[in-house]
Design a binder for these strands. Sequence first.
DNA 1: TAAAGCATGTAATCCGTTACATGATTTA
DNA 2: TAAATCATGTAACGGATTACATGCTTTA
Lengths: 179, 179
Amino acid sequence: MSVLRHALLGMLAKHPMSGYDLTKLFDLSVGNAWSANHSQIYPELARLNDAGLIRQTGENGPRGRKTYELTAAGLAEVRRWLTKTEPDRTTRSEITLRSFFLWLLEPEQAREYLRRELHLAHETLAGLEALEATWQPHNPPDRAARIALEDGIRQTRARAEWAQWAIQQVDTVADSKAA
Amino acid sequence: MSVLRHALLGMLAKHPMSGYDLTKLFDLSVGNAWSANHSQIYPELARLNDAGLIRQTGENGPRGRKTYELTAAGLAEVRRWLTKTEPDRTTRSEITLRSFFLWLLEPEQAREYLRRELHLAHETLAGLEALEATWQPHNPPDRAARIALEDGIRQTRARAEWAQWAIQQVDTVADSKAA
DNA sequence: TAAAGCATGTAATCCGTTACATGATTTA
DNA sequence: TAAATCATGTAACGGATTACATGCTTTA
């Protein structure tokens, strides 16, 4: 059932990796869609190994590094997950939640909150667009990553535009009161 | 620290409500931003009551209904949360995560996945826009809810447009291979 | 040689979901 | 009178974060 399980299998489908590599990936590209800490990853890798969905390749490296590769059963399992199970589509956004309660603040405080979100969204967007600019996908995994990146860009842009719009709403109401 | 705690306080700021009412609210308006089950809400209300942030108003109703109202300390706490603490901005999107792994599927399976997301986003969008159309906010809480709703609309629209774009990407690659 | 980075693991705690459990009232 | 809805609670389990814990290797 678990998402992390299948995320790990999917990431190992590209090429063999260690728990450390996977942890770093969750901080970078994949991190825009899902995150996980090493403390969650290592035990899960051990379970996937026991289940025969991944297998440790050869020896441990000089620093105790363990590299895992996907097995045929593991690949079949990612594909089953992608085609036969429904993703959880519930979204949890603390940003949106907080906006429900902006009426509890002074207009200037509400504006401050929204301006900060606008600023942060712009920053994130700049980072993603910089990544996009240098991204010339020439193979299937990179093309898929490009599609995932595009989603991040569009979501972030939508958030920035929303914050801009919301600031105007607060301004309009504050103006009508001042008048 | 917890988000649920402050969500409950914020919701009770509008007017007194029972755990049952709050549970329903998490399924409706607020549900687009955050969700919670009654099994999580009831114990949390008991804790908030013990902490003096909310208070039970008068008697239990005929069906054992307990209505809670926000205390002055509770209101101060929501405001502190909104102005002095940072929201968690990490997004977890199983939809986006899965798109990283679309290269493991046949193009037609990938298209099917994206078409379904497109369809569902359109459905959600239609629902939110219908809500928007009937929403004439005349008071501060409703204006804030309108801002939150706008975020949901824009995020959902961005997701739909992304799915459309992604289908084209898959088509283009599939075509270039067929040619 | 000290700091930064590589590399893996376990334990405690918290949050969220699912399941279990009960009982009153309204409506068909 | 049976079903739907109102209404509240607890318990078990699983997933995620934070903290604890260790040790090697490369670089400044």
